[in-house]
C-alpha cells in the first residue's frame, strides 16, 4: 500500500495521537479522545479503524498484542516518529494561535 504524506494532521488525528502517548486499545482511544477534547470530539469506530491503519502504515503508531487496562488485546502506542509528528503539529497549532492572537485582540 503506498504511503500517504501526513505532514499536517486533521483534528481527530491530532487527538488520537495525543491519546496514544500511552498504550491503549481501540475503545479506550475513543474514550480518551472524548476526555481530552472535553466531550467535544467523538470518533466513530469505523473512522478510528481507518485512521489507525493509516498511522500504522506510515510508522506513526505500532500495534502490540499486550492487554490494555481494559483487558483487551491489540493495543496501540505512538512510535518515536509519531511523537516527532505530534510535536511538529503542536508547534504548528501554537504558531497559528499566536499569529491570530494580535488580530483577535483588535477585533474585541
Amino acid at each position: 500500500m503506498p504511503r500517504e504524506s501526513l505532514s499536517t494532521l486533521t483534528e481527530p488525528m491530532y487527538y488520537v495521537l495525543l491519546a496514544l502517548t500511552e498504550p491503549l486499545c481501540g475503545i479506550e482511544i475513543m474514550e480518551r479522545v472524548k476526555e481530552l477534547s472535553h466531550g467535544r470530539l467523538a470518533i466513530g469506530p469505523g473512522t478510528l479503524y481507518t485512521m489507525l491503519a493509516k498511522f500504522e502504515d506510515n510508522g506513526i503508531i505500532s500495534q502490540t498484542d499486550e492487554r490494555g487496562s481494559s483487558g483487551k488485546r491489540k493495543t496501540y502506542s505512538i512510535t518515536v516518529r509519531g511523537v516527532e509528528l505530534l510535536k511538529q503539529e503542536y508547534r504548528r497549532l501554537k504558531r497559528q494561535a499566536e499569529d491570530g492572537k494580535a488580530v483577535m485582540e483588535e477585533l474585541k
Binding site: M1, G26, I27, G44, P45, L48, Y49, K72, K74
Partner: peptide, 18 residues
Amino acid sequence: GTDYEKTVKGYTELCGEA
C-alpha cells in the same frame, strides 16, 4: 493489497467493542 478478511475482522471487532 489489503488483507481484506483480516481488515474486515478488525473493523467489525472494533465496531462491536463500541
